[in-house]
């Protein structure tokens, strides 16, 4: 087996609520290889988000390790973790989390501005926006964009630092079915171009577009299996045809 891009070893997270202890994660080992498209599933409260936040170095584990390209990042300082996130991780959130009163392009540029070696060249940021289909919307503010478009800006922002892995926590959760399918189509295309993607979702239909499914239950990994990914493009085409028919009927 080749070197994992990102992996968790014996990962636990325990929250203390008064006298009670909540084991959000109770020992999770996952190895993620370059180019995988992983769906993280499981009932509410099973620890999916906790797991993702720790993969992305936003949160620190109670015990266990996170390794990024073989390097243990568990005990790094806040500043060092910021640099790791900046270099290796791209986040896509359910609520988009764009800066208001800031253009799409400037939103996408944000990760680069925190790079010491950024030379002020915006070409790649525009390229990322073009890649997500928003070439015409670079100067728009988030309030002038639809939910799907806002999520595309967020995806472009997650791509701009050419991360080792893109982490998306319920990226379609706030979108309607068709827009959700469009976003999944984009993720699938990015994966086919070689991006490593980890995506949390409640919906089996969404998880079906990934090639590997992790199912969490009570803070443990219940199952971890490779699956045959369905094509988001085909689903989208079928959905649109069906909608058109309903409209005609």
């Amino acid at each position: 087996m080749s070197q994992a891009v990102i992996e968790s070893l014996g990962l636990t997270k325990t929250y203390r609520m008064g006298s009670q202890q909540v084991h959000a994660l109770a020992g999770v080992d996952v190895h993620i290889q370059q180019g995988e498209f992983i769906a993280v599933m499981g009932p509410s409260g099973s620890g999916k988000s906790t797991f993702m936040n720790m993969l992305g170095c936003l949160d620190s584990p109670s015990s266990g390790e996170i390794r990024i390209q073989g390097e243990n990042v568990t005990h790094l300082s806040a500043a060092e973790l910021a640099r790791i996130r900046n270099r290796y991780i791209g986040f896509v959130f359910q609520q988009f989390n764009l800066l208001p009163r800031t253009t799409a392009l400037d939103n996408v540029l944000l990760p680069l501005l925190y790079r010491k070696d950024h030379d002020g060249n915006n070409d790649f940021a525009s390229e990322c926006l073009r890649r997500v289909g928003l070439a015409e919307r670079m100067d728009h503010h988030p309030s002038q964009l639809s939910g799907g478009q806002q999520q595309r800006v967020a995806i472009a922002r997650a791509l701009v630092n050419q991360p080792a892995v893109v982490l998306a926590d319920e990226p379609t959760g706030a979108l309607d079915t068709e827009t959700g399918l469009e976003i999944m189509q984009l993720f699938q295309q990015l994966n086919q171009e070689g991006k490593t993607i980890v995506l949390v979702t409640h919906e089996p239909e969404v998880a079906a577009f990934a090639s590997r499914q992790l199912i969490f239950r009570d803070g443990r990994l219940q199952s971890d299996k490779q699956v045959q990914a369905e094509s988001a493009s085909e689903h989208l085409a079928r959905y649109r045809a069906q909608k058109q028919q309903e409209g005609l009927a």
């Binding site: 992305g56 936003l58 806040a78 500043a79 910021a82 640099r83 996130r85 900046n86 270099r87 986040f91 989390n97 800066l99 944000l110 990760p111 925190y114 790079r115 922002r157 630092n161």
Partner: peptide, 9 residues
């Protein structure tokens, strides 16, 4: 968000 995309303290 700024921290998530790489802002140091």
């Amino acid at each position: 968000l700024r921290m998530a995309v790489g802002a140091e303290p």
